[in-house]
Design a protein around this nucleic acid. Structure first.
Lengths: 233, 233
DNA sequence: CGGCTGCTTGAATGCGGTCAAGTCCAGTGG
DNA sequence: CCACTGGACTTGACCGCATTCAAGCAGCCG
């Protein structure tokens, strides 16, 4: 639970955070963990698996607005906005830690530094959102998929879910398409092109990055926006 | 400065906030207020005018990732992430209030409720970002432009910058294009179609919404994501 | 006056979507 | 054991929305 090491977290703060956790939960793929527009009284920290935040237009067009890997606070923001404007859905089997809002609120009253760290984690979410706006707004299909593979590689590595240049990514091509603002058919074609270009491979739910520099160049990926550097807050 | 009335702000908190403001600044269109990747020591609250946060790919493709209207804290997040991954640019003549990070940090130590309000404002930013991901990822060109006009109308109304169903929007069509992930040429065509359909008009830097319900329907616009409802935090 | 920026419109191009058919499984049940 | 089923992946052919390229126009300013 001490995954958030962009700044030092004291033992006392770690205990305060553990104290705010009321329990755990598991869920299966496709299960909706949080429904949009329903008042929430707790937030969720992802321990294992992958979850998506997604919105759907009336005619069924679906967009994944964020993907989360283990260690991410999936809906910390519900603590202050009460109800979400999107669904939170498990894409794989997941394990989750639950944090009632009352406890989070108490932390903001008594542990300002820890509160800033939590605030920071929502700011990093926002930075990811902005990069995604850039991606779906201006990058080509090939760049989008390549960028997503690079981003997830970097984020998975932080939480030690990679083995060298490959990592498990138990998503369907349709999931990737909905994250990139493309169709599953076109994602399939793009993945083939990436494979044929010797850049990356995605099969049997495993991503292998064959040419890290080449893939990053093709995506114009620069991990700066992940703000991985630590400094005192 | 008491624009943030989603929850009550006490006199004492208002004074604390005013105390944290170190001064003011003006800038002309196209001026870069904050450069990406440069360490920051202060944040900026927009008082008058419109600013954009934008990223640019190496070949010049530009994406506006956020637009700000008076009353918005443009880069409050620099307080915790130190340097931004995007530029902050004035699109019109602007007037700005400056808040050194030290003062903001002090607020988090001594005014937990005010700190939560500031945190909330960054969460609302993130909610806007997510809606934009949905927009550029899944909406058609016509829907995108219509949605932007609706969103800005709602946001401008909150800060009393509207007169009935019209408001000043001193942006170029290229700015709108870069916000919507389109080209200026196509935005021009879409605006014509919106006008011919009797939905909205945008000329001489003024937006007139001729058919609010029709425009919202065409955009599938629902202001819920703006989280305008107030409740205690 | 020229020069610049932004708006407008037309014609051609192309990226990604749509539609459709077919393949490859893992799971299920006869 | 194999037939059946459903879901995800793959590939091809065609289509269309938005881009690109280009030209012309309007307003503003030195």
């Amino acid at each position: 639970m001490k995954l958030r090491c962009r700044d030092t977290v004291s033992d006392e703060e770690e205990r305060a955070l553990e104290h705010a956790c009321s329990g755990f939960r598991e869920a299966k793929p496709k299960e909706v963990l949080v429904h949009e527009r329903r008042p929430q009284t707790q937030s969720h920290l992802l321990l294992e698996g992958i979850v998506a935040r997604q919105s759907t237009l009336s005619d069924g067009r679906r967009q994944i607005v964020a993907l989360h890997v283990p260690g991410d606070f999936v809906d910390l923001h519900s603590f202050l906005v009460q109800s979400l404007e999107h669904d939170v859905v498990a894409l794989t089997p997941v394990r989750i830690a639950i944090f009632p809002h009352a406890g989070l609120r108490a932390i903001t009253e008594t542990h300002p530094h820890l509160a800033r760290m939590l605030w920071l984690s929502t700011l990093l979410d926002a930075a990811l959102h902005r990069e995604w706006v850039l991606t779906v707004g201006r990058r080509t299909a090939k760049e989008r998929v390549a960028h997503l593979l690079c981003e997830l590689h970097a984020r998975m590595r932080v939480v030690e879910r990679t083995t060298g240049n490959s990592y498990q990514l138990p998503l369907s091509q349709t999931d990737i398409a909905d994250a990139c603002g493309l169709t599953n058919v076109h994602v399939n074609r793009v993945l083939r092109r990436l494979r044929e270009a010797g850049l990356a491979r995605f099969r049997t739910k495993i991503v292998e990055i064959l040419d890290p520099e080449g893939l990053a160049a093709a995506a114009e990926f620069d991990p700066f926006y992940l703000h991985l550097g630590g400094f005192p807050r």
